[in-house]
Amino acid sequence: MKSGKNKKRISMFIAILMLTFLCEYQLIAQEVVLQTDNVQGETHISKDDFPKGNIINMIHGWGGMTVSINEFKGGTDFTPILQGLKDDLCQVPHWGYLEKGKIRIIDSNNSTKSVVAGEVYYMPPGHTLIVDEDARSIEFSPEKEMKELNTFMENKIAQMQKEK
């Protein structure tokens, strides 16, 4: 019975994710091109087999999108790591599902949205993230922008560690 509920939740998540993507795509001039004929490598992967131990655990090559599954400790604040980006905020849009925990998304107007376990979310460009409770998220983001963000964050963390 629980398996049926999980399948229903996953189906609902995918439907909401796609509707959010389509609506936001038309509302803002964000150009995200899904290259469905350009999928490389695996087209599915078990959560248990997903990469671990990186700043952002992600897989590229899914039709122009990156998928990530991450666990963050409560108290994590991404704001200092984002300093140096435009407006000192993440400019990559993310569509996700919070599997466990609680997060706060803060946008460029300092508007805060709280997301709790079991909810789907959209983070438009121009945001930061604070993890209020140990969290696990599954996210989809444009591949090119996500690669650039990951490189920036790796360099920023290396710089911060040198300064200690």
Results as ranks from 00 to 15, higher is better:
residue 30 Q to D: 12
residue 29 A to S: 15
residue 136 R to W: 01
residue 52 K to M: 09
residue 152 F to Y: 09
residue 20 T to K: 00
residue 113 K to P: 00
residue 60 H to W: 00
residue 147 K to R: 07
residue 145 E to A: 14
residue 54 N to Q: 10
residue 35 Q to K: 13
residue 61 G to V: 11
residue 111 S to A: 03
residue 55 I to G: 08
residue 133 E to P: 04
residue 131 V to N: 09
residue 77 D to C: 03
residue 23 C to P: 00
residue 68 S to R: 02
residue 59 I to P: 03
residue 152 F to W: 01
residue 3 S to M: 10
residue 123 M to E: 09
residue 163 E to G: 02
residue 112 T to F: 00
residue 19 L to K: 05
residue 41 G to S: 07
residue 94 H to E: 02
residue 5 K to L: 01
residue 21 F to D: 13
residue 23 C to K: 03
residue 88 D to P: 14
residue 43 T to Q: 12
residue 118 G to K: 15
residue 119 E to K: 14
residue 138 I to P: 07
residue 52 K to R: 15
residue 38 N to Q: 15
residue 133 E to T: 15
residue 42 E to R: 09
residue 24 E to I: 04
residue 76 T to C: 02
residue 86 K to Q: 15
residue 55 I to K: 04
residue 35 Q to E: 14
residue 43 T to H: 05
residue 67 V to A: 02
residue 157 I to W: 06
residue 158 A to E: 15
residue 79 T to W: 00
residue 24 E to K: 15
residue 8 K to N: 12
residue 161 Q to D: 11
residue 101 G to I: 13
residue 123 M to H: 12
residue 101 G to V: 09
residue 72 F to P: 05
residue 92 V to L: 00
residue 154 E to T: 09
residue 157 I to Q: 08
residue 106 I to S: 00
residue 23 C to I: 15
residue 69 I to C: 03
residue 139 E to N: 12
residue 89 L to D: 12
residue 62 W to I: 14
residue 74 G to I: 06
residue 66 T to P: 02
residue 90 C to P: 02
residue 44 H to E: 15
residue 3 S to H: 14
residue 28 I to F: 03
